[in-house]
Amino acid sequence: MDYFLQQLVNGLTLGAIYGLIAIGYTMVYGILGMINFAHGEVYMIGAFLSMICLLVLGAVGITWIPFALAITLVIAMAFAAAYGWTIERIAYRPLRGSFRLAPLISAIGVSIFLQNYVQLAQGARPKPIPPVISGRVTLLDTGGLTVAMSYTQMLIIAITILLLVGFTWLITSTPLGRAQRATEQDQTMAALVGIDVNRTISITFVMGAALAAVAGLMVTLYYGVIDFFLGFLAGVKAFTAAVLGGIGSLPGAVLGGLLIGLIEAFWSGYFSIEYKDVAVFSILVLVLIFRPTGLLGRPEIEKV
């Protein structure tokens, strides 16, 4: 039971990170119908930005941790957003109206480029970061085993919930969100009623990238080590989360993220840690075959 609860806590933390990345996939898929394969790399860049920012802050003597974290969060989101914007502008926008698989191929190109760009700029070796927040809360203590939740885990889950509430509000109740949903339905019509489609799409990429950067900061804090290859696997898993939840659906992305996090934690805890990625990939394959609309997605009818 204790072990179960501990895995639950770990899984939820991991799931929060996947969920944040999955939102970026799902928003872009919703609006452009493309898999932004490079999104995992934006998350990786977010992690590097966070690491660099924490180091710089440490070097200039800003040591009050809440303040340092707040600054890092803002800076990582801002710079990652710049990356997201640039990627869309250079690699995807010119391809609207090209053949069906062109954006995906281009996205794979961006992904390869960014991985090697970071590897060249920052080196191939993993980067260790000393723990920023230490300490944990014991949730349950039954003599032998304890269930604990570190402050880092609490922070991760709290920030995820906060951001989700914020983004849900942004998309359901602001003109920006309305423009986004309209563009999702029909780009031509949206343009006809005066929505700046290009701007809306750019903002979607910016938002997705900013959320991925948050996930990047969290993974930096949580694991304490990052490398340039971090984005590939996390990207595929977050995409799996988005598909599992129902691609195009924001709550679905978070639900899918949590489920994937839990599955991974429990699989590692109870079966075999070696095959945890196989478990996730198998879910991806099974969901796509048997329920491509995911848990919360809308069914799609083949138009003839």
């Binding site: 995409f239 990625d277 196989v278 394959v285 075959i289 491509p292």
Partner: peptide
């Protein structure tokens, strides 16, 4: 099982298969 999936889903599934085989 996957050839009736639409193009980009098919692509991602094949990526998954490739990784599964490598992990195995």
């Amino acid at each position: 099982p996957v050839l009736r999936l639409r193009g980009d889903y098919f692509a991602i599934v094949t990526l998954g298969f490739g990784e599964i085989i490598r992990i195995v």
